[in-house]
Simulated assay, not measured.
Amino acid sequence: MNDTVLTGIREQFFGDNPLEVRETDHYTQEYVGGMVDKWDDLIDWDRRAEGEGRFFVDQLKARGVRSVLDVATGTGFHSVRLIEAGFDTVSADGSPQMLAKAFRNGLDNGGHLLRVVHADWRWLNRDVHGEFDAVICLGNSFTHLFSEHDRRKALAEFYAMLKHDGVLIIDQRNYDALLDGKTGGKSSYYYCGTEVEAVPDHVDDGLARYRYEFPDGSEYHLNMYPLRRDYLRGLLRDVGFQRIDTFGDFQEQPVDEPDFFIHVAEKTYVEDPDA
């Protein structure tokens, strides 16, 4: 399906049985015009900025980062924040509708001309050129990959885009708590729009289907794979990342059952202490 067709889609389509939709490529039919137009109501840029503070900026600056590839830019929130913090930023996304919205948001929020690239993570090196000090993959975006093969391929592409001492910052919902029945899945830090409901409709080991209800009565859904925290940390190690620090809701010592986990994975080679 080409970009021209995709940018004209307004309504989601999940077929006769939405719970059977468990394919990576389906996200292009989920982030359609109607939902993209309302996405910033869900995020609430001001409240989200207040909630996360300088966490990402400080993590990057502490490692001497100058260039950043935002591989899941969405509507551009983090790309704009990074540009304003002085980072040389390239913004990529697999959804052409999201990229169009991000480009407009960059202009509307400080007059920033975002450098946007339409790219599928599994072939990231084909579409994005050069190396970066950091790659960020935020907003629970990685959970749109439904097969382990896709997840490993995407992480390998992220790794390859990094310089020898680069860092990947990747986040995820606390699906452990959701799968284990310890939380209803409502987020206080990432989806801050006070008039938008984002709740799980269905959860099993292979699917977390969320419902998003907006003040005008419109309703949208996203189908995602419920990644467990230690599983993703294991994949990061398998790809080659040497040190992985995991934060809960931006805290090194997380509170009980945080909304989100943020993994900071360093590529810098660490000598084997047992060698």
Rank of each mutant, 00 (worst) to 15 (best):
R151N: 07
L124T: 02
V255Y: 02
F261L: 06
N125M: 00
D180M: 13
V116F: 00
D108T: 06
R151L: 03
D176P: 07
L82Q: 01
V199C: 06
A265I: 08
P96C: 06
V36T: 12
S218Q: 13
D238H: 12
F250L: 11
L207F: 10
E84G: 06
F132Y: 15
A72Q: 04
I244L: 11
T246L: 08
V135R: 01
G33I: 10
D150M: 08
D88H: 12
S67V: 11
H149R: 13
A72P: 02
P18F: 10
A198M: 13
G166L: 06
D108V: 01
D127T: 14
G193Q: 05
H263K: 10
Y175V: 07
D256A: 15
T7L: 13
A85T: 09
D180N: 15
V68G: 05
A265C: 12
R47I: 00
F87P: 02
R151E: 09
R122D: 08
F158A: 04
D44G: 09
V80G: 01
N105T: 10
W123C: 08
F103E: 08
S141M: 09
E20R: 15
S147F: 11
V135Y: 02
E213N: 01
D274F: 15
E84P: 02
I169F: 03
D204R: 13
Y269R: 14
V116R: 09
P254Q: 10
D88L: 07
V57Y: 03
N17R: 11
F103G: 00
M161R: 15
D272V: 03
M224H: 07
V167F: 02
R209D: 12
G130P: 11
